[in-house]
Every structure is written in structure tokens, then in C-alpha cells.
Design a protein around this nucleic acid. Structure first.
Length: 306
DNA sequence: AGGCAGGTGGCCA
DNA sequence: TGGCCACCTGCC
């Protein structure tokens, strides 16, 4: 800290001073499309694309008390942060992006050699990643996701942060913690256009408020035990529990089945008429220990080409 | 203009 | 268990 840093010249008004771009120490070399799919393909709801006055694209996102910008520059990933948050973000960003995970080996272990459709999806989004998001925020985001499309989920969460989140840097507000949400009324949540999800969020906030440490403990449990506990929460069913464990808990064996995956697997694997629970079982059996990674590739492919 | 959207919970046989 | 249906809201 302390050391003065040059700031980006493209700083718009009312926004914090951002540090100079720094090279991310990571082997990851995503294409524009893969970066977009990773940050804004339904895993996370707090990233948005923006452009500098020079017309260069970058992504800006937030998680807990961190905010960062990412850009692809000459094929390499670079990052920037609000000046006051630089050191915190430097420490947290590799965890968030899964820098220390061996994605090559995980992808290699998927059954693409015997599964032509999976192979196509892998080729279409090479080196797609799963984010490692904060557990509690992932839970919040996916409770909000019920029968909503990504842009609308993003908008709900942006409203929530703007109205009920604390400021982490000038002009940037984080999402409220679950402890803070316990003090936000269901009506206030409805005012953030949560709709019927307001009851789920308020109910989960109340549940967690009565059980200090419950969520942190859940995050440490093995997949099956953690899932059983998540299912106790109002507004959390099979699909959302699996999303929380996959995108917020790095439990790669979890295989969320939503309407897209249901349709995609029915079509590509001849599972017509199968119910979500059966498709989930098929997914774990067919794709193996990193079934959730396969799911993300299939989901990306389906959104693009389906 | 009415239906639908990355679900869940509750009620019915 | 298995199959409905209500639940909010905004967008095509």
C-alpha cells in the first residue's frame, strides 16, 4: 500500500482511481469469447463489459469486498483494481479465477474421446473455467436466479448492492452480507424487483441469522453433506444447491440441471422424457468427477449454438 | 397482449 | 413418488 500508482487515463467521472494494468500471473490464455463466457455466462452476476474511450474492451466485476477489471491485452490477461483495494484484490483474484487449479488435467479427464458432442463443446470454448466465488454470495445470486434470465438477475443484484450494500471504494458498493440481509425487509427486497424471490432471500437470511457459522460450516463439508444442508434453505432446491456448490464451492462433481441442460442432454444424448433428477444422475455417471466442468462447456455451447 | 424466463414449495392422487 | 400450479416482474 502507500506507494503512489499511476492511474488509468480513461477514468470516468464518479469512479475510483484504478491502478495501472498488471499482468495476471496465470497460464490462462482465454479468447475474448471464453473470457466472456466465464465471467458473464451464468456463473457470476456481477461482471459487466465496458470500453475505454479508445474503444478497448474490458470487464469490471465485484465479489465480496473486492472489485477488479480484467482485459485481454496481446493475448495475455491483465488486471486492475481500485487503488485503495489493490493489495486485497491482488491476493484474492487468483483464488477467484481458479489460478491454482489444474484445468488442463481436469478437462483432459473428461470423456471427450468417446463423446463427440462434448468434444465439440470443448473445442468451441477452449480453457473455459469455473470461478471460485464466495460461497454466501453465490447462494444469494442463485436464489435470485429462479426463472430469471442473466441480465435480470444482474439487475436485481445491482439494485440490491446500490441500496443495501456498503461502499468498498468510491462509487462501488458490495452486495450485503447475509447478516446484513437479515435486517432488510421482504418489502425492501421486493422494491429491488426480487418478486417472489424476496420471500426466499428473507427466509434464508432469517434461517442463517439464527444459526451463526452454519453457512461457513456447510461450505467445508463434502459435496453430498453440504448439499443436504443447503436444501434446508427456503428457495434452495436441487438445481440451486448444485450451482452454489459448483460455482461457489468448487465442488466439480456437482451437476446442476436446469431447463437448458435438460433440453440439451435430451437432444444430444437421447434422454427424451427424462426428469431432472435422472439427468443429474446420468451427468455424474457419464462425465465423472468433473461433471460440473463438462456441464459448463455444454451449457456454453448450448447458449451459443442451441 | 400473453407467454415465458437457468426453480421451488405446496398440494393433490 | 409424481404431476400440477402459484409465485413476481420485465421483456419479446
Amino acid at each position: 500500500m502507500g506507494k503512489a500508482r499511476r492511474i488509468n487515463p480513461e477514468r470516468p467521472p464518479n469512479s475510483p482511481a484504478w491502478t495501472d494494468w498488471e499482468l495476471l500471473r496465470d497460464e490462462w490464455r482465454p479468447s475474448d469469447a471464453v473470457l466472456a463466457e466465464t465471467l458473464d455466462g451464468g456463473q457470476a452476476f456481477r461482471w459487466q463489459q465496458a470500453t475505454t474511450p479508445e474503444g478497448e474492451l474490458f470487464w469490471q466485476g465485484q465479489w465480496t469486498d473486492c472489485a477488479a477489471r480484467l482485459r485481454l491485452h496481446k493475448g495475455a490477461l491483465e488486471w486492475s483494481a481500485p487503488a485503495a483495494l489493490r493489495d486485497r484484490v491482488a491476493k484474492a483474484l487468483p483464488d477467484y479465477l481458479g489460478t491454482r487449479t489444474d484445468w488442463v488435467s481436469l478437462t483432459e479427464a473428461l470423456p471427450w474421446r468417446s463423446d463427440a458432442h462434448l468434444a465439440t463443446a470443448l473445442r468451441s470454448f477452449p480453457s473455459l473455467r469455473l470461478l471460485r466465488q464466495p460461497f454466501g454470495e453465490t447462494l444469494l445470486g442463485f436464489i435470485c436466479s429462479a426463472t430469471k434470465q442473466i441480465p435480470q438477475i444482474k439487475q436485481m443484484l445491482a439494485h440490491l448492492a446500490a441500496r443495501h450494500g456498503s461502499e468498498i471504494a468510491p462509487g462501488l458498493r458490495r452486495l450485503p452480507t447475509w447478516a446484513e440481509l437479515a435486517d432488510v425487509s421482504e418489502t425492501a427486497l421486493r422494491d429491488c424487483s426480487f418478486g417472489f424471490r424476496a420471500r426466499h432471500v428473507a427466509g434464508t437470511a432469517r434461517f442463517l441469522d439464527e444459526r451463526p457459522g452454519w453457512l461457513e460450516e456447510t461450505a467445508r463439508l463434502p459435496y453430498a453433506a453440504a448439499k443436504v444442508r443447503l436444501l434446508e434453505l427456503p428457495g434452495v432446491g436441487e438445481k440451486i444447491a448444485d450451482c452454489v456448490l459448483l460455482f461457489g464451492g468448487a465442488r466439480l462433481e456437482s451437476f446442476p440441471v436446469d431447463t437448458w441442460i435438460l433440453k440439451a442432454l435430451a437432444r444430444r444424448y437421447g434422454l427424451d422424457g427424462w426428469k431432472p433428477a435422472q439427468v443429474a444422475q446420468f451427468g455424474r455417471a457419464h462425465f465423472g468427477a468433473a461433471a460440473g466442468l463438462a456441464q459448463q462447456y455444454l451449457f456454453a455451447w448450448e447458449r451459443r449454438h442451441g
